[in-house]
Design a protein around this nucleic acid. Structure first.
Lengths: 348, 348
DNA sequence: CCTAATATGCTCAATTTGAGTATAAGTGAG
DNA sequence: CTCACTTATACTCAAATTGAGCATATTAGG
């Protein structure tokens, strides 16, 4: 119908690898589209969609990742399409829920913005993809880096127990945020969201709710992006540790990590991230790195071995620091045998 | 970069309800965009994205569903963005994999189309949403219908045991398709896909693989859409029973059903589809309707009751045909207590 | 009062988990 | 060469979950 402002469509890639037991994501430095002054920020690889280009979006994505990062992608899946207006320049209102809600949502009473967000400017739609790669298969060009995922989302790494920053930063800040709610109803709602999201006040920690946590922190003004999008200079002391990203890319990263954590349980995606031959401990470390929790070694072995996910090669790896470990490979036939072959984390 | 052809963006809604123990989807009759002659077909509600319109895509969607179908949506979640070129007019080549792959994909060697699909025509991106509704909350306007989901995907309903059409149509047709592969490698691959998808040759049936099954049938030329998109008039005798839809809307429906089936297991989405008060058998019937399998009554009750998902109201429903059944309601607190509250189907 | 239909309570064995204990097979220091 | 230490791998055991079925309760209708 309307034809005036036009719509720009781009593709983003969250490319994840695990090296040295650390999940990493491919980023590049560039001017932050959401920053009024265009200061440099970490960004996810991005490319415009050429309407006359490749036949599928996925091919387009593979193509420019190949060019831009000299990287051949293996597993790729579509993550989410981000398309809220003002998402790159916008000003979410206090108390209003953010737009992108990959996990599904019930309606909320949304107060109409008092000043309508800028019309006339082009609307940008970003189709974000998740890709899994074996890192360092390639040398990254200048400006392209494999950054640690948990540098951006430090509260997600619970492998050494609940991170210290929970008690030092998160919980006090969240409590302040809860208390500062306008009404009793809103306070209860904030309390619930914080409890469910961060496993506080008696709720269990649910590793998959990565996006929920990021959005909560954003909504509470505890990440720099929130201040940036509202045109406020935040007091650094009020911010939760964690490296920001440009535009809404940290939201995309959170979406990706949540997706991986969910999927690892019922699809054999881990094997995209380990070399073709691996010891069971190596495999376990990768799963732990992604899920952010430590696992019981013997049970992990039982699960993965008796579940038919792997098979021994007969070869052994000897520089383990102890008894040599057998090398295993992914057993592809499991796809035919079991309905949902994954590695089953605790609480599944 | 390129600016010539331009990109059109639209929103599609797969609106699902369950009435009389049958899952239904809201459709309307209209000219099929993929049919060269524009013949009428069943279509999902669709609306263009107005770049200057609502702040979020979801609000836009809710808005025109309200107008077009006089329906107020409850739960809404983004499904997938379909954006392959030629998807509404196109001609996937024999043996080539379809573009949209919500479940994630490894690269495939794709033979480049011999005749490049038509350039210059606008590329259409459709962001598809899943919405759950309590049917008949509204009177549908003319041309809008609640159709049975299993009219479009009859092979998905296994509540009365494996549907008869498996042996009468599907298996023989699939076997022909497998045999007609060009190479041994391709034959094995087809066989595997059929086995995993439809639970043949010793594999288990996996209810969630709805999209995989539809795409397999499409690729095998067993649904009318395949012939339509290739410009071939198919022999009706070679087609699997099941009502077609216009454009790629049946693919969207399949994506939606798969998503619901997956999600019902770890999120309390069923409660969106039943009235606020319900008997446990009613609830069970809805779960069965969506998942396409029968469940053990006593175990279902145990799961849902002792899992804290529901609580009795003290009221009773008496026209059950037997002993009156207690009415239950959804226990919202479960969200705070359990990590993944769903109804757990067999084989979870 | 008897029969059919549905609801609801309870049992029981088979599996699956969570958490250890025990033993094997390497390394490097002394 | 032996000991201390490290990692790998094999087993055990109790608790929890699941799949399947039996038994009893409560209604309606002849």
């Amino acid at each position: 119908m309307s034809d005036q402002p036009r719509i720009d469509v781009g593709l983003n890639a969250v490319i994840v690898a695990v090296t040295d037991e650390r999940p990493r994501v491919l980023t590049l430095r560039g001017p932050d589209p959401a920053d009024p002054e265009g200061r440099a920020a970490d960004l996810l690889p991005y490319g415009p969609l050429d309407p006359g280009g490749d036949r599928t979006l996925e091919l387009t994505l593979r193509g420019w990742v190949r060019n831009q990062a000299r990287l051949e992608l293996g597993y790729v899946e579509q993550l989410y399409t981000f398309g809220d207006r003002g998402r790159l320049k916008g000003q979410p209102l206090e108390g209003e829920r953010l737009g992108a809600e990959p996990s599904g949502a019930w309606p909320r009473e949304t107060r109409p913005p008092e000043a309508q967000p800028p019309e006339g400017e082009p609307r940008t739609l970003s189709v974000a993809y998740l890709a899994l790669a074996r890192e360092r298969a390639s040398r990254t060009p200048a400006g392209v880096h494999w950054q640690e995922v948990y540098a951006y989302l430090p509260w997600e790494d619970g492998r050494k127990g609940r991170p210290e920053l929970f008690d030092r930063f998160l919980v006090p800040r969240l409590e302040t945020w809860i208390r500062s709610a306008g009404s009793r109803r809103e306070r209860d709602e904030r309390r619930d969201r914080a409890a469910v999201g961060f496993g506080l006040f008696g709720s269990d920690w649910d590793g998959d709710r990565v996006l929920e946590r990021y959005e909560l922190l954003y909504g509470a003004g505890l990440v720099p992006e929130a201040g940036r999008d509202r045109g406020i200079t935040s007091d650094a002391g009020d911010l939760v540790p964690g490296r920001p990203m440009g535009a809404d890319h940290r939201r995309m990263l959170a979406t990706a990590l949540g997706r991986i954590r969910g999927k690892i349980r019922y699809r054999p995606v881990v094997f995209e991230l380990v070399p073709p031959h691996f010891t069971l401990l190596q495999l376990q470390r990768v799963v732990e790195a992604l899920s952010g929790v430590r696992l019981h070694k013997q049970n992990f072995r039982r699960l993965v071995e008796r579940g038919g996910l792997v098979e021994g090669t007969g070869d052994y790896e000897s520089d383990t620091g102890g008894r040599p470990a057998e090398l295993f490979r992914f057993r592809r036939e499991v796809l035919r045998e079991r309905r949902a072959p994954g590695v089953g984390l605790p609480g599944a």
